[in-house]
């Protein structure tokens, strides 16, 4: 093997490369770039087979857990805060219905300008009245 042909590549000097002992590293890097191992057909086939296996078994989308009925209702109404509002309204209604008839009477009397709350109006007089001779 002729020594001149097998030198360290000093003729391929790269100006950006520092020289150490007259050695041109860039020539070695250039050589290595063209001398990498080639992927064998066998390796490519194995990699492709793996790809097919993984493709054949796609990741199943996670099943949405089934909500209990109460939770489902809460979700439909807009979550637990909406439920809290509903509960407050319901309790307030019950409280008004049971606990404050006097206040309601007073308010009605004040509004209508009479002392007693009318119990009812006799809009349908009884039949006897028409039978009375006057």
């Amino acid at each position: 093997m002729p020594g001149a042909a097998m030198n360290w590549g000093t003729t391929m000097a790269d100006k950006t490369q520092p020289k150490d002992d007259g050695l041109d590293l860039q020539a070695f890097f250039d050589a290595a770039q063209g001398q990498g191992p080639e992927a064998s057909p066998d390796l490519l086939a194995r990699v492709l087979a793996d790809a097919e296996d993984q493709r054949a078994a796609p990741v199943a989308p996670a099943r949405r857990p089934r909500l209990p009925r109460l939770r489902a209702l809460a979700a439909a109404l807009g979550g637990w805060p909406a439920f809290a509002g509903l509960a407050t309204a319901a309790v307030t209604g019950v409280w008004i219905g049971f606990s404050a008839p006097d206040t309601v009477d007073d308010l009605t009397a004040g509004y209508l300008g009479i002392a007693e709350t009318p119990q009812f109006a006799d809009l349908m007089p009884q039949f006897d009245m028409f039978m009375t001779e006057g």
Binding site: M1, A5, M6, W8, G9, A27, F28, F29, D30, A31, A32, G34, Q35
Partner: peptide, 11 residues
């Protein structure tokens, strides 16, 4: 051959 020798030495 030169490149192969350089690549081998570098490796």
């Amino acid at each position: 051959m030169v490149d192969a020798a350089r690549a081998k030495a570098l490796q």
